[in-house]
């Protein structure tokens, strides 16, 4: 007997997009941690996944713009490819019965075939700073360039984050702020924004005990981050989650 070629898997018949949240202690899960947990949830829920071909077939899942480890999110997106047609709402319901605590699917829609990543150009964030951010926000907005340092695998890097921060506002109580980040040379994370505020204002200490939440993802238009699933879907679960996803 000689080596056999791997089994070819049939192509997907449907793609479903999911928006999910990641909150509480589960925010400490890395994207890889979530991906393993999500694949296991798909198997527990018996979702009829399409698999890749090859010696090591894996379920076809496309993740987009994962939130940094330690940051909570109300607006994470992924797309799954299915081997059988199925109502997206029932996928959502069956996954929510088996996902680990801290993760929930908030909306499910059938893909229209467009590239999901192109609809997720901007992110809206809420960052709890614990100190008055009013002056720091004003200084940040007045600057042409805000250079921060970030520790990466290759060591400390310097990044100019100013251009990618398209909106920034201190909340009424001033201890938290809202930000919108968009495309740029770098993907700006909430930690970078806090670091940037610390650069322009001595009142902000970085890294502080800041808590960050991604409130929405989508295309930035008319002062709002527009959810790719459409306004009705967004309005529904924004109300459920008790938040308002625009600035």
């Amino acid at each position: 007997m000689s080596r056999q070629p791997p089994v070819q898997q049939p192509p997907p018949v449907q793609r479903v997009r999911l928006r999910y949240f990641k909150q509480g202690p589960a925010r400490f899960a890395s994207q890889q941690d979530f991906a393993r947990a999500f694949e296991r949830a798909l198997r527990r829920a018996a979702v009829p996944m399409a698999y890749s071909s090859g010696f090591n077939p894996h379920p076809r899942i496309s993740y987009s713009n994962a939130v940094p480890t330690g940051v909570a999110s109300l607006a994470e997106y992924l797309e799954i490819a299915l081997a059988q047609r199925i109502d997206p709402v029932s996928v959502q319901a069956s996954l929510n019965r088996v996902l680990p605590g801290g993760f929930q699917i908030m909306a499910a829609v059938e893909s229209d075939g467009t590239a999901l990543a192109e609809l997720l150009t901007h992110s809206a964030w809420r960052i709890d700073l614990g100190v008055d951010a009013t002056a720091a926000v004003a200084a940040f907005l007045a600057a042409d360039s805000v250079v921060v340092q970030r520790m990466g695998k290759a060591g400390l890097r310097e990044l100019d984050i100013r251009a990618a921060v398209v909106a920034l506002a201190a909340d009424a109580g001033a201890l938290s702020l809202r930000a919108v980040t968009g495309p740029g040379k770098v993907v700006v994370r909430p930690g970078d924004i806090v670091a940037g505020l610390a650069v322009v204002s001595p009142a902000v200490v970085s890294p502080g005990a800041s808590l960050a939440l991604r409130v929405a993802q989508g295309v930035w238009s008319d002062g709002r981050v527009r959810d790719p699933f459409g306004p009705e879907k967004l309005a529904n679960d924004a109300a459920n989650a008790g938040i308002v996803a625009n600035l």
Binding site: A26, F28, A29, P100
Partner: peptide, 19 residues
């Protein structure tokens, strides 16, 4: 514990609540 977790490697290992 929570504020300390934000400062360490692989914090998810300490939070429990697994399936």
């Amino acid at each position: 514990l929570e504020p300390l977790l934000a400062q360490v490697q692989k914090p998810i290992q300490y939070v429990g609540g697994e399936v």
